[in-house]
Design a binder for these strands. Structure first.
Lengths: 239, 239
DNA sequence: AAGTGGTCTAGACCACATT
DNA sequence: ATGTGGTCTAGACCACTTC
């Protein structure tokens, strides 16, 4: 186990279980590095990761302090994970998909631009409605280059595509560039998502990147408003 | 100027202006550190910041590569800034506020919890409609501890509160924990935001933290859907 | 003046990918 | 076997805050 990860986990636990409380001043980097028997740089890396996770703040010249987090923020922190595919977010629920379209096509100019490919390349076009315990909650339109995501089959898209990519293809997903907007639902969406006319929807447009740097996914998903939520931590300029 | 910031800016510019192109393999950390005349650790810090900004990706054992960004992503990157108050986002537009309420009260249990204060503390309660060029686009309900944000006056809340906090009070805003949801507008919102009945709204609920670690703001803002957009980069586990 | 976190170094060793 | 990025060190010096 990497030392800075071990220290990170240890200190995160101490914040969550109350060993360190809100606004408490922590021992100095020097003291902590002696306590954990690591160099100052390693200690700093552990602490910087805690800052990134929103658990502590550092004040140059003054010290390191536990953030003034409310109780429910702490609970959220203790189970926080960055993005996951829908299947992973609801592990004990039954997530299924209704496939509206699944084909291989040439990309439109928009898709070419988003995925940085040419008109001669092929992409999967996937249109599906995802359901939790048979309740529809999101309509997805996804485009993925065939050259990257080989041998995608109907059985995969009925389950989790992210799972297929990460487990079977052994690719790593590195990051997602995401945009969220809001609008009224269309009649087709009302019908597919089993909503009432006039209900709003949350729109997530995103480009996904693999750890090899390639854009592997451009998708637009339309969420039932009552199942939609997006949480994030924004920081003021780290650089 | 810090060396790693200088290198970060230099390389970012080279990606934006096309000196380095999509998917190109960059020189190794060793070569780059020789070129910039810095140690490997400093070079690594510059590169890690570029990774955080979503411009490059690193592959252990293989090299560092420019991300496969589309043209419009690159444009976005070249002017990207993390969060700003609304006034800062629209510098050439006229941003004004209609104050619906501005008072000092004792916090409700919810506010106590979010701001980590007690029932005896006082908070400002601010309810305002913000407008761009006289067009309303968001209703904000904000609570801020009086003990932190001293001497807040009506003239400040008519302008930008973030500006007051950062310029006059000389506080630094460190981070914001934000949640986005969607719902239908109420009749009151339709009226205040000059919308049509049945229009949806985007809801942003957030807690803001100063660089001294204190929670200084709990706010719920209700956005006209056609003026609302939220962009972000999500990364898979840095730690 | 003393203590804090921030930057930077020169080098060691490790884990992983490619050849 | 070679080259890549990742971790870690021991220590120097700097910038800032507090006393």
């Amino acid at each position: 186990m990497k030392k800075y990860v071990h220290i990170f986990n240890d200190m995160k636990n101490k914040i969550i279980d109350g060993t360190y409380v809100s606004n408490q001043k922590l021992p100095s980097e020097k003291q902590l590095s002696e306590h954990y028997q690591v160099s100052k740089m390693t200690m700093k890396q552990a602490l910087d990761n805690l800052v990134d996770d929103g658990l502590i703040i550092k004040k140059r010249g003054s010290g390191t302090f536990v953030k003034d987090l409310s109780a429910d923020e702490l609970v959220r922190m203790s189970l926080t994970n960055q993005f996951r595919g829908k299947t992973a977010e609801y592990p004990q629920e039954k997530v299924t998909s209704k496939i509206l379209a699944f084909s291989v096509i040439n990309p439109s100019p928009l898709i070419q631009q988003k995925l940085n490919i040419s008109a001669e390349d092929f992409v999967y076009f996937l249109h599906r409605v995802r359901k939790i315990n048979d309740q529809p909650f999101v309509i997805e339109e996804t485009h993925m280059p065939v050259s990257l995501i080989r041998d995608l089959k109907r059985s995969h898209v009925e389950q989790s595509i992210y799972e297929y990519i990460e487990t079977e293809l052994q690719y790593k997903i590195q990051s997602v560039h995401r945009k969220i907007t809001v609008r009224q639902s269309t009649a087709a969406e009302v019908s597919e998502l089993d909503m009432t006319e006039g209900d709003p929807v949350g729109i997530v447009e995103q480009v996904g990147y693999l750890s090899n740097g390639a854009a592997f996914e451009y998708s637009i998903s339309t969420h039932r408003y009552d199942r939609f939520k997006s949480e994030m931590i924004l920081k003021r300029e780290s650089v």
